[in-house]
Design a protein around this nucleic acid. Sequence first.
DNA 1: TTTCTCACA
DNA 2: TGTGAGCA
Length: 116
Amino acid sequence: MMAGSSDKGSATDPSSPLDDGSAPFFTIGQVAQILGLQPAALRRLDEQDIVSPSRSDGGQRRYSRDEVERLREVVELTESGITLPGVREVLALRQRVSDLEDELDELRGRGHDVED
DNA sequence: TTTCTCACA
DNA sequence: TGTGAGCA
């Protein structure tokens, strides 16, 4: 049998920061390439508070995997004809729905009667 | 070289 | 929204 303790160094750790979607960072140029946008477009999104990437050495933007996924939703909405302020409203509404759903689930779990 | 901010069209 | 100038 194979001694299962030879390989598996540290490439598939389910609890590694490399798996935390929020650990890996991309430069604005990489994100622009992935989303097919111009670096200036990513800056507009940051200026309009649609996405808030972290900053690293020198104050350069650092986009995490989660930020890139959010950017992808934003570009889809903008390409649908929605303006940036409109996208911001959609994102806010989506978050509001998730928050209310969580609250609703909590009320149900406590045995409370949820009236519509 | 890349990214930054600021400004203009 | 895209591009340019000047800087770190």
